[in-house]
Design a protein around this nucleic acid. Structure first.
Length: 479
RNA sequence: CGGGGUGUAGCUCAGGUGGUAGAGCGCUUGUUUCGGGAACAAGAGGCCGCAAGUUCAAGUCUUGUCACUCCGACCA
């Protein structure tokens, strides 16, 4: 060849610079584009398509658990936002304000919702009268705005899309049950659709949601070992109900305050998918959430019969899968690289040789493995491959995460582990925020959660101060 | 919000000491190609991020501002 090496679009190797790799993938897989407002992204078809899949699947799960969708306004009057003290303290520093309508200054400024508790609560105060009205199980799919100082695509943007569920219940027990049920739904969704293992647990008081009594979380480990809070479910008790006057008459005709929950996941999940599954060739999408599951590439399709056969195969596949057939005149090699970049789980190549032998070539995105499939009964074979990919992505992520959980019991090892071993640390804690603060100060790691499935050993001491421990806690650096 | 870096063609970038804008890739058209990012030919494409200032003259110098990006602090 001897020619100068051609310049091709490429991405930074993942293990060389994870941050750069991430932004390269986000841009080159055509998920987003930047807009002229900092932290407000354009979600392109590839990116929005993933969100549509997330919405579709998760919305089904929410409906199946009796939730109803609503739409609240985008604006919150300042006085309404201020109704619950902890809540406003938590959010005030990062809300965007609308001060004018046309040329005229508003009597009262309006914030663009950073979250919609106050709007739901104002409404609930009106519609809740009797125990017969409860529970109320509402959800909305909207975008919210938080004026973040530093932003990163999907992980931290000023406007982001999410779903926020807001429910009202008669009793503490009912509300707590709902809080944990939704954590289960999120767990199921992340593990079975996103192929992303999560650790479930409770947030410490320091990390809980502004205005919540208890916050539960699912925490995922990214490929670089850092944690990503991937979904939260909050138990409010009757705090908001008291602030907003949400009361009902019980069976004995006595007025009671209602008990509430809220819970949400956001487009941040797209960031999680990228950082859990992606590799040096770009995005890797789990088949169950991929907007396009199969890239069908006809080879040498100017030759007699190839394109016809490809159309036929496409029609067959589309009975069960989403298929992209690329019959543009780009080179096959270009198409291979492009659809790998975009994370399409399975590629099927169909050329004259395949047609001759009644087969096609399948290439797995997760492993790069090539197998020849018979065209006869193709869909069943493809389904099998997609299932295997889905399972492999999960198994792979789980194995890597489990390898990178380190249990430590003394502070020296704790500091040494945070510094040298990316991943999560499991260590006992005394329940004093001073220790959380010190750990963050010294190492940059924060408490991720108090897991449900780890019990404290008899006589365990706080990894930081050495006093008697109250909980086992996962710690780690987080996004 | 603190520290570093960067804004010139769609993308990546080059444009000493100020003198009116370039390359590669991409794009368009045509021909040949097609099993891992094709070749040739002919084209199109730029208020040099934005705003002030210095100057006869600013991509180039000054100041401001906005955005992106990396590293911290803060938050989903």
């Amino acid at each position: 060849m001897g020619k100068e090496k051609k310049r091709v679009e490429s991405i930074t190797p993942r293990d060389e610079d994870f941050g750069r790799w991430y932004t390269d993938v986000v841009i080159q897989a055509a998920l987003v584009d930047y807009s002229s407002v900092k932290g407000c992204l354009i979600l392109r078809p590839n990116g929005w398509g993933i969100w549509e899949r997330i919405q579709h699947v998760l919305d089904g799960m929410l409906k199946a658990t009796s939730h109803q969708n609503v739409a609240m306004p985008m604006f919150i009057p300042e006085s309404l936002l201020e109704r619950e003290k902890d809540h406003v303290e938590g959010f005030a520093p990062e809300v965007a304000w609308v001060t004018h309508g046309g040329d005229e200054e508003l009597e009262e400024r309006l914030c663009v919702r950073p979250t919609s508790e106050t709007l739901f609560c104002e409404h609930y105060a009106k519609i809740v009268q009797s125990y017969r009205d409860l529970p109320i199980l509402y959800n909305q799919w909207v975008s919210v705005v938080r004026w973040e100082k530093s932003t990163r695509p999907f992980l931290r943007t000023r406007e982001f899309y999410w779903q926020e569920g807001h429910t009202v219940h008669a009793t503490e027990e009912d509300a707590m049950e709902e809080t944990l049920r939704m954590l289960d739904v999120y767990t199921d969704f992340c593990e079975n659709y996103l192929a992303m293992p999560v650790i479930r647990g409770q947030k410490t008081d320091k990390e809980k949601f502004a205005g919540a009594q208890k916050t539960y979380t699912i925490e995922a480990q990214m490929h670089d070992g850092k944690a990503l809070q991937s979904g939260t479910s909050h138990y409010f008790g009757d705090g908001f109900a008291r602030a907003f006057g949400i009361q009902y008459s019980d069976k004995n005709n006595e007025l009671q305050f209602a008990h509430q929950t809220s819970w949400g996941v956001s487009t941040r999940l797209i960031g999680a998918i990228i950082m859990v599954h992606g590799d040096d060739s770009g995005l890797v999408l789990p088949p169950k959430i991929a907007p396009t599951q199969i890239a069908l590439i006809p080879i040498a399709f100017h030759k007699e019969g190839v394109l016809d056969k490809a159309m036929e195969v496409k029609a067959q596949l589309e009975k069960d899968f989403t298929v992209l057939m690329d019959d543009s005149d780009k080179m096959p090699g270009w198409k291979f690289a492009q659809y790998e970049m975009e994370g399409i789980p399975l590629r099927l190549e169909l050329g004259p040789r395949d047609i001759e032998s009644g087969s096609c070539m399948a290439v797995r995105r997760d492993t790069g493995e090539k197998v020849s499939l018979k065209l006869e009964n193709l869909n069943a074979q493809v389904q099998e491959l997609l299932d295997a990919i889905q399972q492999n992505l999960y198994d792979r992520a789980l194995a890597l995460r489990n390898e990178r959980i380190y249990e430590v019991h003394d502070y020296e090892s704790f500091v040494e582990t945070v510094e040298n071993k990316p991943g999560f640390i499991l260590a006992p804690w005394c329940d004093d925020q001073a220790c959380e603060d010190k750990i963050k100060e010294d190492t940059g790691a924060t408490s991720r959660c108090i897991p449900f499935d780890k019990t404290l050993e008899e006589g365990a001491k706080c990894v930081c101060c050495g006093k008697e421990a109250k909980h086992m806690v996962y710690w780690g650096k987080a996004y």
